Amino acid sequence: MHTGTRRIINGNIVTPNEVIIGGSIEMENGIITDVLPHSRVRSLASDDIDAHANWIIPGIIDTHSDAIEKEIQPRPSSLFSAKQAFMELEKKLVLQGITTMYHSLSLREHKSGKQRSNETVVQLLEDINEMKQHPRLINHKTHIRFEITNVKAIPIVREWLESRKMDQLSFTDHTPGQGQYRNREELKSYLMGTQQMTEQEAFQWMDMYLELEKIDQQHLREIADIALRQNIPLASHDDDTLEKIEAAKKWHASISEFPITLDIAQAAKEAGLYVVLGAPNIILGGSHNNNLSALEALKSGAVDVLCSDYYPPAMLQAAFYLYKQGFLSIPESINLISYNPAKALGITENVGALQPGLDADILIVNDNNAYPAVERTILKGSTVGQLTYQPTKQLTKG
């Protein structure tokens, strides 16, 4: 945290409702103290940061990302230590503009690889919670994705909630034939491509999954009640029926992640849930598994939040794509990756907007080229990442 007073000047400041052209932000001891129009900016001081007429936006809040799993296991046979992966990942996230990351850990167990076994996830959560106690480049949070066929993990999840070892919980169900995997052929192709299964092995995996016992509604409600009591946000996942939306409301869930169809996304919105879809879905022009198009949902007003899902760079790219293509104003597009996630997760008292009293988690973004680029990342008033692009020097033949 930066101690003392400093300013960011000469930038186009994006607030939840407007853009302040050529404005400045004053910070003291890591907290935003004022947001000023150009006419009130005093002369340049030695500790000031000149934004050079670039965008000044809040740090990005990523509600759902399995990037830590990819960093630990970049190849099926390559497994790095969690602590090493954690340190390397945050270096990347800083200059992708993500200042608050909810690391999504899948507590799945059934033939999903060692990385998602109960034993491994227990250790990974402990490692992350230990690592984030030390000086860090970003804010680290944890999101436990609790598969409802993982009956053995009930006491683990209850203990984590009671001791507040997690920051978000979601109930997931990847049983073939419903939700994300309604189409068995697409699931087969996914398993063969990502898990190196043969066609026969893929169908055997699906048949075995269908035989698994599911946690009953009473136990899910008891777990949801603990989350509510501990003020830990709860999400439903891959909703594909109105019954699932109704169940989510009974659990006091606040979020619906990745609803499968437009009518279900709209129903989730009408039920008062924040709808989260993937930023890669925007960039790629559709869902990677042929489910709901995020752009279609956005045009219908059925999206509140974008998350990185599996590709963190997509967060900033998607927000600026939506703005530059005229789908949203710049405040509306930036809200999808900052203010709205903060509201969905109940953390607006600390982060999510460029407003007095909030943490000075701030990005300076240059969008003069084909893709937006973070030129400076500021966490609690301190610069934690900076890029200075240099002109290419032309080599001459001697």
Rank of each mutant, 00 (worst) to 15 (best):
P58W: 06
E257F: 04
I60S: 09
G352R: 11
R75C: 10
K83S: 15
P280I: 06
W251Y: 15
C307A: 15
A45S: 10
T377D: 03
D263E: 12
A319N: 08
V374R: 04
Y209F: 12
I362F: 01
A51K: 02
K250C: 08
H237W: 02
D127R: 07
D66K: 07
I282R: 08
G357M: 11
V14T: 10
S333C: 07
A294P: 00
S39H: 11
L242P: 00
V35A: 08
R42A: 13
G11N: 07
G59Y: 11
Q230W: 03
K188V: 12
A82G: 09
N335S: 13
K188T: 12
K70Y: 08
E126G: 10
Q73G: 03
S308M: 04
I362Q: 03
K269C: 01
E109W: 02
A360F: 05
D34F: 01
H140K: 13
E88C: 09
W160K: 04
N368T: 14
L298Q: 06
E69A: 09
E199V: 13
K214M: 14
G23T: 10
R184I: 11
L105I: 06
P76S: 14
E126M: 05
N183P: 01
T175G: 04
A370L: 12
A248E: 00
Q196G: 10
T149E: 01
S81L: 11
F327T: 11
T5I: 11
T63L: 15
P58C: 09
S256V: 06
Q204S: 12
R229V: 08
D207T: 15
L354C: 05
V35T: 10
T172V: 10
H252C: 06
N231C: 11
D367V: 13
V276E: 02
T15E: 04
E296T: 12
D359T: 09
L187I: 03
I9N: 04
S77T: 14
P233M: 15
T5K: 12
N350R: 15
R158V: 10
S43H: 13
N118G: 08
I61R: 13
Q178S: 14
D263F: 04
F258H: 07
G11R: 14
S24N: 02
I60C: 13
G193V: 06
Q217N: 12
I283W: 00
A318D: 03
L292T: 06
K114A: 14
E199G: 12
K249D: 00
L363N: 11
Q84E: 07
I61V: 14
L107R: 05
Y190A: 15
N139Q: 09
D367P: 04
A265E: 02
D50L: 14
K343A: 12
